[in-house]
Lab assay of single mutants.
Amino acid sequence: RYTFRTRGPEQMKRVVEWARRQNLSYRVEVHGDEYIIHAE
């Protein structure tokens, strides 16, 4: 189980790509310009 905090969509997309390659399920929360990605 991982939690990532990123700023801006570019970093968020990179984390999502990584999670997909690992076959993890993930969800993204948006708080202003901060993205929180939960993957497991």
Score class of each variant (00 low, 15 high):
Arg5His: 12
His38Lys: 05
Gly32Trp: 04
Glu29Gln: 07
Glu29Tyr: 12
Arg27Glu: 09
Arg14Glu: 10
Trp18Gly: 00
Tyr35Val: 05
Thr6Val: 15
Arg14Lys: 13
Val28Lys: 00
Lys13Val: 08
Met12Tyr: 07
Arg1Thr: 12
Val16His: 02
Met12Gln: 02
His38Asn: 05
Arg5Tyr: 13
Tyr26Pro: 03
Asp33Met: 07
Arg7Asn: 11
Trp18Thr: 01
Glu10Pro: 06
Tyr35Thr: 04
Ile37Gly: 00
Arg1Tyr: 11
Glu34Lys: 05
Glu34Trp: 15
Pro9Tyr: 15
Tyr35Glu: 01
Arg14Asn: 07
Trp18His: 02
Lys13Ala: 11
Val30Met: 12
Thr3Trp: 06
Val28Thr: 03
Ile36Asp: 01
Tyr35Cys: 04
Pro9Gln: 13
Tyr2His: 05
Glu40Gly: 13
His31Met: 12
Glu10Ile: 08
Glu29Pro: 00
Ile36Asn: 01
His38Val: 13
His38Met: 09
Ile37Pro: 00
Glu34Arg: 06
Asn23Leu: 06
Arg5Met: 08
Met12Ser: 03
Gly32Leu: 07
Phe4Ala: 01
Arg20Ala: 09
Tyr35Asp: 01
Arg7Tyr: 11
Arg27His: 12
Glu10Gln: 09
Asp33Asn: 12
Phe4Asp: 00
Arg21His: 08
Arg5Ser: 05
Asp33Ile: 05
Glu29Thr: 09
Phe4Val: 05
Gln11Gly: 13
Asn23Met: 07
Glu10Gly: 07
Ala19Gln: 00
Glu29Met: 08
Arg21Gln: 13
Gln22Ser: 09
Ser25Tyr: 12
Thr6Arg: 04
His31Trp: 11
Arg20His: 07
Gly32Pro: 04
Arg5Thr: 10
Arg7Phe: 11
Ile36Leu: 08
Arg5Glu: 03
His38Ile: 14
Tyr35His: 04
Glu40Asp: 10
Arg20Ile: 15
Gln22Leu: 13
Val28Gly: 00
Leu24Phe: 10
Ile36Thr: 06
Val30Asp: 04
Arg5Ile: 14
Val28Pro: 00
Trp18Gln: 01
Arg14Gln: 12
Leu24Asp: 00
Glu40Ala: 12
Val30Arg: 14
Gln11Pro: 04
Lys13Thr: 09
His31Gln: 12
Val15Ala: 05
Ser25Phe: 13
Glu17Gln: 10
Val30Pro: 05
Phe4Tyr: 05
Arg14Asp: 05
Asn23Cys: 06
Glu29Asn: 04
Val15Gly: 01
Asn23Gly: 15
Gly32Tyr: 05
Ile36Gln: 02
Leu24Ser: 01
Tyr35Leu: 04
Ala39Ile: 15
Gly32Arg: 05
Ile37Gln: 00
Ile36Tyr: 05
Phe4Ile: 12
Glu10Tyr: 07
Gln22Ala: 10
Ser25Met: 11
Ser25Ala: 11
Ile36Ser: 02
Pro9Ile: 15
Val28Phe: 03
Phe4His: 02
Val30Ile: 13
Glu40Gln: 12
Phe4Ser: 00
Met12Leu: 11
Val30Gly: 04
Glu29Trp: 10
Val16Asn: 01
Gly32Glu: 07
Ala19Gly: 00
Lys13Ile: 11
Glu17Met: 09
Glu17Asp: 11
Ile36Trp: 12
Gln22Asn: 15
Arg27Val: 13
Val30Lys: 14
Asn23Gln: 10
Gly8Cys: 13
Glu10Phe: 05
Tyr35Phe: 12
Gly8Ala: 14
Arg21Val: 07
His38Arg: 07
Gly32Val: 04
Asn23Ser: 07
Lys13Met: 13
Glu40Pro: 04
Arg7Glu: 07
His38Ala: 03
Phe4Cys: 07
Pro9Leu: 15
Glu10Asp: 11
Asn23Lys: 10
Pro9Met: 14
Asn23Ile: 02
Arg1Val: 13
Trp18Ala: 02
Arg20Ser: 08
Gly32Gln: 06
Glu10Thr: 08
Gln22Tyr: 13
Val30Glu: 08
Lys13Arg: 13
Thr6Leu: 11
Ala19Phe: 09
His31Arg: 11
Glu17Tyr: 05
Arg14Pro: 02
Glu40Phe: 15
Glu17Thr: 06
Glu34Leu: 14
Glu17Ala: 11
Val15Arg: 02
Arg1Phe: 09
Thr3Phe: 08
Phe4Pro: 00
Trp18Arg: 01
Gly8Phe: 15
Arg5Lys: 10
Val16Cys: 05
Arg20Trp: 05
Leu24Val: 03
Arg20Leu: 13
Glu10Val: 07
Glu34Pro: 00
Ile36His: 04
Lys13Leu: 14
Glu40Lys: 08
Arg1Leu: 08
Leu24Gln: 01
Gly32Cys: 04
Trp18Glu: 02
Met12Phe: 11
Ala19Trp: 02
Gln22Ile: 05
Leu24Met: 14
His38Glu: 08
Val15Met: 06
Val15His: 03
Ala39Met: 14
Gly32Ser: 05
Tyr2Val: 06
Gln22Met: 15
Trp18Ser: 01
Asn23Val: 03
Gly8Arg: 14
Glu29Ile: 11
Glu17His: 05
Glu40Arg: 09
Val16Leu: 12
Ile36Val: 12
Arg1Asn: 09
Thr6Asn: 01
Leu24Arg: 03
Ser25Thr: 13
Val30Gln: 14
Ser25Gly: 05
Glu17Ile: 06
Trp18Phe: 03
Gln22Val: 06
Trp18Met: 02
Glu29Lys: 04
Gly8Leu: 15
Ile37Asp: 00
Arg5Leu: 08
Val28Ala: 02
Gly32Asp: 09
Thr3His: 06
Glu40Met: 12
